[in-house]
C-alpha cells in the first residue's frame, strides 16, 4: 500500500537547513495497523505528512497504492487525499461552524456528492462511532472524546484505503484514549490501513507493528507480539 525508498526531507529556516528525514525506507502493506514512535524532532510527523501528501519530500521515491508520487500539483494531491486518505489530528481539526453531520460529510462535499445523499451517509458513520444523538451539535458542544470520534467518522466517510492519525490521543484522557484505540482497531479490522503517530507506549502497543524513528532514520521496526488481533496481522502480511 505504501512504499518509501530512501526518503529525504529538510526544512530551510533562514540560512540553516534542518535535515529532518535522512533516508527512510519503509513498506506498509494493506490492512496493517502501524504505530510510528519517536522523540520529538525525530521526524515522525514529517513522515506522516509526506505519506499524507500534505508535504512533499525532497529526495527518494514514494509509492502510494502503486503510484509514484512525484512533482504532483495541489489539485491532484487534493484529489488523492480525498479518495485514498483519511486524517485524524491531535487537535481534532473540526470546522467550528458546521454541525456534526456536516463535518462528517465534508469530504463527500468535495467529491461533489449531493447534500441529501452525503448527509445520509454521514448519519450512518455517526451511528457507527456512536454519535447519532449529537448529529445536530456543533463541535464546541462536544467533549474531547466525542470530537475525536467525530473526526474519525469524517476520516472514514470517503472510504479511504489509509487512515493517518497524528497523535490522535494526545489531547484525551486515558479512558477516552482507550475508546478511540478500540475504534481504530475496529476500523483496521474492516481492512483499512492505519498509521498512527504517537509517543505513548500503551497506545503503540495496541497496534500490530511499531516503527521507532530516531534522528530522521528508522531505528527499530518490529512486529508487536502483544497485539490483541494477531491473526489479523498475519493476514495482512
Amino acid at each position: 500500500m505504501i512504499k518509501l525508498n530512501n526518503i529525504h526531507k529538510s526544512y530551510q529556516t533562514g540560512n540553516n537547513s534542518l535535515h529532518v528525514l535522512k533516508g527512510i525506507n519503509l513498506e506498509v502493506n494493506a490492512g496493517e495497523m502501524v504505530a510510528v514512535m519517536g522523540s520529538s524532532g525525530s521526524g515522525k510527523s514529517t513522515l506522516l505528512n509526506i505519506i499524507g501528501l500534505l508535504d512533499v519530500h525532497d529526495q527518494g521515491d514514494y509509492y502510494l497504492d502503486g503510484n509514484l508520487i512525484k512533482g504532483m500539483n495541489e489539485t491532484k494531491a487534493a484529489l488523492l487525499r480525498n479518495k485514498f486518505l483519511g486524517f485524524v489530528f491531535q487537535s481534532f481539526n473540526l470546522i467550528s461552524f458546521k454541525n456534526a453531520v456536516e463535518n462528517v460529510a465534508l469530504p463527500l462535499y468535495y467529491q461533489g456528492v449531493s447534500r441529501r445523499k452525503r448527509n445520509k451517509i454521514a448519519m450512518e458513520y455517526l451511528d457507527r462511532v456512536g454519535l447519532l444523538p449529537w448529529a445536530d451539535h456543533l463541535p464546541n458542544e462536544l467533549s474531547g472524546g466525542q470530537k475525536q470520534r467525530l473526526a474519525i467518522a469524517r476520516s472514514l466517510i470517503g472510504n479511504p484505503k489509509v487512515i493517518l492519525a497524528d497523535e490522535p490521543t494526545g489531547a484525551l484522557d486515558s479512558v477516552t484514549s482507550s475508546e478511540v484505540m478500540d475504534l481504530f482497531q475496529e476500523i483496521n479490522q474492516s481492512g483499512i490501513t492505519l498509521i498512527i503517530v504517537t509517543h505513548e507506549n500503551d497506545i503503540a502497543h495496541k497496534t500490530q507493528r511499531i516503527i521507532k524513528l530516531h534522528d530522521g532514520l528508522i531505528d527499530t521496526d518490529h512486529k508487536n507480539g502483544r497485539t490483541k488481533i494477531e491473526t489479523n496481522a498475519v493476514f495482512a502480511i
Binding site: 499524507g52 500534505l54 495541489e74 489539485t75 487534493a78 484529489l79 487525499r81 480525498n82 479518495k83 486524517f87 481539526n93 473540526l94 470546522i95 467550528s96 465534508l106 469530504p107 468535495y110 467529491q111 469524517r154 470517503g158
Partner: peptide, 16 residues
C-alpha cells in the same frame, strides 16, 4: 488559514 488547511487536507482542491 487553519480552517482552509483542514478543508484542503480533506480534499478541497485549490480551485474550490
Amino acid at each position: 488559514t487553519k480552517e482552509i488547511g483542514i478543508m484542503r487536507a480533506l480534499g478541497a482542491s485549490p480551485a474550490k
